[in-house]
């Protein structure tokens, strides 16, 4: 048992070492990487990724997945931008609308998945394309800009010398950790992802909790979307394109299992930092966008293979253990 615990710990640290190694490497080969300004930059850039990753972590722990987060962001960006620019809506109502939209889409995802019994991958894939279409219909593919001045505070402003968006992200991470570790519902999320049948037989309302997980994920997509819009100052349908890929890569890198029942928000945070600094480092080295895609694709592949191998290994360990137990004196 002790050996296994150690193995798990080391594999947890493994990703951390990858992050450190990457930071060291980039500080030597990527120009301006080590500058304070760059770190502030990165921290602003990864906020949306980080916040949405917390939601994704929760969904993945219950054994699900949400592919629609990227286009949720697009649609919310475009809608809020349209409201502020074309309908003259103020900053606060626009933000509230954005958060409400995210929550609603998440709720919808959850209800469809639970009530229809269709695989989350397929449901959210369909929703993802639908949202993409709607966002183009609203924006006609043209960027919408010219927001009220105070709107940019969230993505660009500082509070006590710290980027506001970074503070929001830290708060979301702390809330996520408290939810998963201290709130009873968090443990039920793990129970559902690990052994749904057992959860059901123990009287847990599995369906309702799954819907809740997708709803939280949607709400956090809304928060992330507002920060992104506020930072880029431009509502564009392509803002969230492919974003789900970064989120899932970060989660899997951070040890959130694609099979459910396993993962922490701090693991996800490490994954987010890896993806964030990788993007930044490659950009500083002037590696083109398409090469970045190749690198990230391979990275995700390695992470999932590693995850599956670890699971297989622990199953073998368990089997051998039970045989040994059967044969022990």
């Amino acid at each position: 048992m002790n050996r296994k615990l150690n193995m798990e710990k080391i594999s947890g640290y493994g990703v951390f070492f990858v992050l450190i190694g990457m930071l060291v490497l980039f500080s030597f080969i990527a120009p301006h990487f080590l500058e304070v300004n760059n770190f502030f930059n990165v921290s602003r850039q990864i906020c949306t990724l980080g916040i949405v990753s917390v939601g994704m972590t929760i969904v993945m722990i219950t054994g699900g997945i949400d592919l629609s987060v990227g286009y949720q962001i697009s649609l919310i960006n475009v809608t809020c931008a349209w409201l502020m620019v074309n309908a003259g809506v103020g900053t606060v109502p626009a933000i509230l609308t954005g958060l409400l939209m995210g929550t609603g889409i998440g709720l919808l995802n959850g209800i469809i998945i639970v009530k229809s019994g269709v695989a989350p991958l397929i449901v959210t894939l369909a929703i993802m394309n639908t949202l993409n279409g709607i966002s183009y219909i609203i924006s006609k593919g043209i960027p919408i800009f010219g927001f009220p001045k105070n709107f940019s505070v969230f993505g660009q402003g500082n509070f006590l010398g710290m980027p506001i968006s970074l503070i929001i992200m830290v708060i979301v991470f702390i809330l996520g950790a408290v939810l998963l570790r201290k709130v009873y519902i968090g443990k039920y999320f793990y129970a559902i992802g690990s052994n749904e049948e057992a959860a059901k037989l123990s009287g847990i309302s599995v369906g309702r909790l799954k819907i809740l997980a997708y709803t939280i994920c949607g709400l956090l997509s809304g928060v992330g979307a507002i920060l992104l819009l506020s930072r880029t100052n431009s509502g564009l349908s392509s803002n969230g394109a492919g974003f789900e890929f970064n989120v899932i890569t970060a989660c899997v890198l951070g040890g959130v299992s694609s099979n459910g029942g396993k993962g922490t928000v701090f693991g996800a945070l490490v994954g987010v930092l890896i993806v964030g600094f990788l993007d930044n480092g490659l950009l500083l080295m002037d590696v083109n966008q398409y090469t970045q895609l190749v690198v990230k694709g391979l990275l995700m592949l390695i992470a999932v293979i590693y995850d599956t191998q670890m699971r297989k290994k622990s199953e073998v360990v368990k089997k051998v253990k039970s045989i040994n137990a059967n044969n022990e004196v």
Binding site: A191, S194, N195, E197, I204, G261
Partner: peptide, 15 residues
């Protein structure tokens, strides 16, 4: 009907 990732105590009180 146990959940492997939870502790013994958590499993006993599950639900």
């Amino acid at each position: 009907t146990l959940v492997p990732v939870l502790t013994a105590a958590e499993n006993i009180f599950l639900g």
